[in-house]
Amino acid sequence: MSREDVLVDADWAEAHLDDPKVVFVEVDEDVSAYDGGHIKNAVRLDWTTELQQPEALDLIDQADFSKLLSAKGISNDDTVVLYGGNNNWFAAYAYWQFKLYGHSDVKLLDGGRKKWELDGRELTKDVPVRATTSYQAQSPDLSIRAFRDEVVDAIGSKNLVDVRSPDEFSGKIKAPAHLPQEQSQRAGHIPTAINIPWSKAAADDGTFRSDEELTALYSAEGFNDGTPTIAYCRIGERSSHSWFVLREILGKDDVKNYDGSWAEYGSLIGVPIKKDV
């Protein structure tokens, strides 16, 4: 796996807007963003109601993923290009979910919606009509998903990469600063985790930094190359961004995303927590 296999740039995207085997899919934290304008022929995935079970806060299962993609008109052999706002956080989360359920050809649009807008490229409000398909999701690939017990066991032995902002890592704040700070869980981080914020992997325009810059970033922050890795954040989407960097761009072995992340870990009773403030 390398950058060319998993990323497309905006020029490539513009040249493939009408390609029948390429499906553009927008995924945003603000799920209404699509309504205000989206890339031509792109369909929307709603992470709050479609990619997760709203009550259980767990991912949708294999059968529901098949149903969802069938309804969206996506086939198993389509090239899926994901993009979104927030520097592709939620697009990366959807990418990870597509990989979890075995989609063979999925890519991210480098820079996502922000780069597209800053370039002054065209957006449309026209919603494409796609015929339903018979999508067949694979069994979940648990080699890329971490659960809470495994995270507790990883303390002191694996790379635990906390990709939140330094203030969230230290325990000064509990959520990203664009959200009200009303969360009930405790503040801090998992002991022995290293703090490598997702944002260090991206330029201002949302594009990923070069392979050389990314390699230097992780080695400078104490990432141990010979050790399995679990990335986490608050609810699993920023860590999908860093998971994408580590496993998909840099090709590192045994990298998992802990999608339960701090929302789960910081609410568990009896687990160790480190707080720096």
Partner: peptide, 18 residues
Amino acid sequence: MCGAPDQATLPSLEVSPN
């Protein structure tokens, strides 16, 4: 509106002590 959190639908500004 666009991909980052929608600033048009923010709650009214009530600043908590924290």
